[in-house]
Amino acid sequence: MDFYSFLIQVLNSVQYGLLLFLVASGLTLVFGIMGIINLAHGAFYMVGAYMAFALSSLTGNLFTAILLGIPLSLVFGAFLEWALFSHLYKRDHLEQVLLTYGLILIFEELRSLLVDDEVHGVAIPDVFSASIALNDTLSYPVYRLVISAVCIVLAIGLYFLIQRTRLGMMIRAGSHDRDMVQSLGININLIYRTVFALGVTLAAFAGMLAAPISSVFPGMGGGVLIISFVIVVIGGIGSVWGALFAALLVGFADTFGKVLLPDFAGAIVYVLMAAVLLWRPEGIFKKG
């Protein structure tokens, strides 16, 4: 590998890592702060992607689709929390797993009934459809760079929200001691509902952004779910910086694994996870 190819692979790693962060950030919030093992996270990602597909074919524009999709996801998330998840906080993890696994099946079936079982494409908005030439054979799609930029903005925004705002303070306090926060006169139920809606929206937003690259297809949530859990576990449950760092780490391991150790490309991410867990069982950025 010459130096120039190496640089391009670094770019690939960062770009893939940031995309993974986008998907995993919602999971780390819901898992870390609310203590809910949400297997349906990938299904929310799929819902987002299909929303982008449906709304952009209705409105003819991905931006409009995303602008419509975000409030829809927030409402959808708040509704699910009210109807289902709010009954689970005091329950066993196994019951959470059962509920969220059931949701996967329900969403897949609804998808099959409402849309179909075929693969569909979502067009990249014209503004970003160009590519930048890297050398005489290879160019880089602008849209991928846009996604990376959005992910960076989002990471900073999330950090700011959780560490520097009053709401963030209440969220952090609520994750430590639900009952104490409530006894201080803070409406903890509302806070949890907000966090859950935010988590669902992050997953759906990731699906909407990724749809033009990945296409929309049955079972698309399953693949991102597993890698998201790997990232959350490596990064330290509930830590936004941890998720960002872990996502980049996984991005590098996956990209360079494919190039340097092609025979073990499938295992490399999991070996990385095992190594990190041996070294720091709580994840790299464990919560203080």
Binding site: S5, I8, T137, L138, S214, F256, K258, V259, A265
Partner: peptide, 22 residues
């Protein structure tokens, strides 16, 4: 002969390889 694990669909690393082999 390049392979990637099924059903992985992150192709950028391979596309970069292809571009450098020409």
């Amino acid at each position: 002969e390049m392979t990637l694990p099924f059903p992985n669909v992150e192709f950028q690393a391979y596309l970069t390889e292809i571009a450098s082999i020409k």
